[in-house]
Design a protein around this nucleic acid. Structure first.
Length: 103
DNA sequence: TTTCTGACAAGAG
DNA sequence: ACTCTTGCCAGAA
């Protein structure tokens, strides 16, 4: 298991409930800037029953990057999390962006 | 080894 | 605000 994978998981686990962050930021906070795409690929491999808050990660535009049923799932989870998500998957980063501070 | 592919991002029109 | 292009980098083919 590559070290950066573990770092990414570590960062992921710290995202507070009700907040979101971006692929790029997760990569940066994990100590591997410019690896945003890898973060997404890694999240895609997470087991369905994973306890990690993968759904709190969206793209730099503040949009859910998934499609179809996956999109719906992430949106539901975020709504349950207390995050306002428009029908098109848009989120107000100004309000929900995680600054990196622990919960 | 070269090429292609992403749950991406930043910059230029 | 929006579309397009270029840069990115680890895996898979």
């Amino acid at each position: 298991m590559p070290n950066f994978d573990l770092q990414i998981y570590a960062v992921l686990a710290q995202i507070p409930q009700g907040k979101v962050t971006t692929y790029g930021d997760v990569a940066k906070m994990a100590g591997y800037p410019r690896h945003a795409r890898h973060v997404g690929k890694l999240l895609g491999t997470l087991p369905k029953d994973s306890r990690l808050p993968w759904f709190r990660v969206v793209n730099a535009k503040g949009m859910i990057s998934l499609t179809g049923s996956r999109f719906t799932r992430q949106r539901e989870l975020l709504l349950d999390d207390g995050v306002e998500v428009k029908e098109n998957g848009a989120i107000s980063m100004r309000r929900y962006r995680w600054d990196g501070e622990p919960a």
